[in-house]
């Protein structure tokens, strides 16, 4: 298992949720993980039902078996000041730069520079060791930008090469790329069993591969339970089945069975249509040749206990 786990996915597929569940799953049995947020959305804080995260690593959850999950919301501005402080001992000059808008400039205008700072901070956490020479975190899980932007985001080297051809940012980009393109890193894509997210996922896999970035797993999220088996599905296509269903409903103690049979069979027809569509999407995903994981839809909506359920499910599936 790579030590830097990058989680991306189309908007609305639940990538923050999957990243958090993965961080919990990887922290079981006494390990320590860091869950990193880079888009300033405070999605992690909402998920773990805590107050907004500062730019500081803090413990947000305990995993089964004594493990710990830490979280960090990386703020590009503060990361840059951090970085300046580390390399140039800037002190007050950093604040002056901020006042002039130079920090704003460096962090928001040239996206490649901002991305180097964000990925750079995550890579630093991956490599960090304590006094005994052990890694500070067993795993770092990043809640990364969506699939449409992920290759560009991670491929900082190309982005920055055109801008900063020499200098510390250039060197930093090189160092970050070494980690991101190594076996230390795995990029996972979260999807739903729907056409648009699946198409975007497959496009994303192709882009990542073309950029020689290590693609990890495909995580299918919000998978609905199979409530009708194949034989039952075959029966719903038979229009003559309705009287028998009315009879069975009545026998099961349902009043006005006659009126309900129609709508219930309509719902089954919709289910059958969706089921066929989902099967086709699964086949498309399987063709990508990557490990595939499925996480169930939590019908009661997602809360903290749901997150632990998903983490357990990931453990069960061998993560």
């Amino acid at each position: 298992m790579s030590r830097l786990q990058v989680v991306s996915g189309k908007g609305g597929t639940g990538k923050t949720t999957v990243a958090a569940a993965l961080a919990l799953a990887l922290a079981t049995e006494g390990r320590r993980t860091l869950l990193v947020e880079v888009e300033g959305r405070q999605g992690i804080a909402q998920l773990f039902e805590t107050e907004a995260l500062p730019y500081e690593e803090r413990k947000i959850a305990v995993a089964p078996g004594g493990g710990e999950v830490y979280a960090l919301a990386i703020d590009p501005e503060l990361a840059l000041l951090d970085y300046l402080q580390m390399f140039y001992k800037l002190g007050g000059a950093g604040r002056a730069l901020k006042k002039l808008g130079a920090i704003d400039f460096a962090t928001t205008v040239a996206p490649g520079l901002r991305d180097v700072l964000l990925t750079g901070k995550a890579c630093e956490a991956v490599r960090r060791k304590d006094k005994q020479g052990r890694y500070a975190y067993d795993y770092v899980v990043m809640d990364a930008p969506p699939t449409g932007r992920i290759t560009r985001f991670l491929n900082v080297n190309d982005e920055v090469a055109g801008l900063a051809k020499i200098g510390p940012i250039h060197n930093q980009a090189q160092a970050v790329m070494r980690v991101l393109k190594s076996r230390e890193t795995a990029v996972h894509l979260v999807t739903l069993l729907e056409e648009m997210p699946v198409q975007e996922t497959l496009d994303g896999v192709a882009e990542l591969r073309a950029a020689k970035l290590p693609v990890g797993r495909i995580m299918v999220n919000m998978v609905r339970p199979a409530l009708l088996g194949e034989p039952a599905l075959a029966l719903t296509r038979d229009t003559g089945v309705r009287p028998a269903v009315v009879e069975a409903l009545a026998a099961a103690g349902i009043g006005s069975a006659k009126r309900l049979a129609g709508p219930l069979l309509t719902q089954a027809g919709e289910y059958a249509e969706r089921y066929a569509l989902e099967r086709a999407q699964r086949e498309q995903l399987a063709a990508a040749g990557l490990p595939l994981h499925e996480l169930p839809l939590l019908t009661e909506g997602l809360d903290l206990s749901g997150l632990y359920t998903l983490a357990e499910e990931l453990r069960r599936q061998g993560i």
Binding site: R224, P225, L227, L228, G229, P231, A232, L235, T236, V241, A244, V245, E247, A248, L249, A251, A252, I254, L264, L265, Q267, A268, Y271, T299, E300, G301
Partner: peptide, 25 residues
């Protein structure tokens, strides 16, 4: 009665229960 029909009907009812949960949420 035909066990497949009963299986189907039970499935229809479970499907409906799931749908009602979604509607309520």
């Amino acid at each position: 009665s035909d066990p497949t029909i009963e299986q189907l009907t039970a499935g229809l009812l479970r499907l409906h229960a799931e749908r009602m949960h979604v509607v309520a949420r």
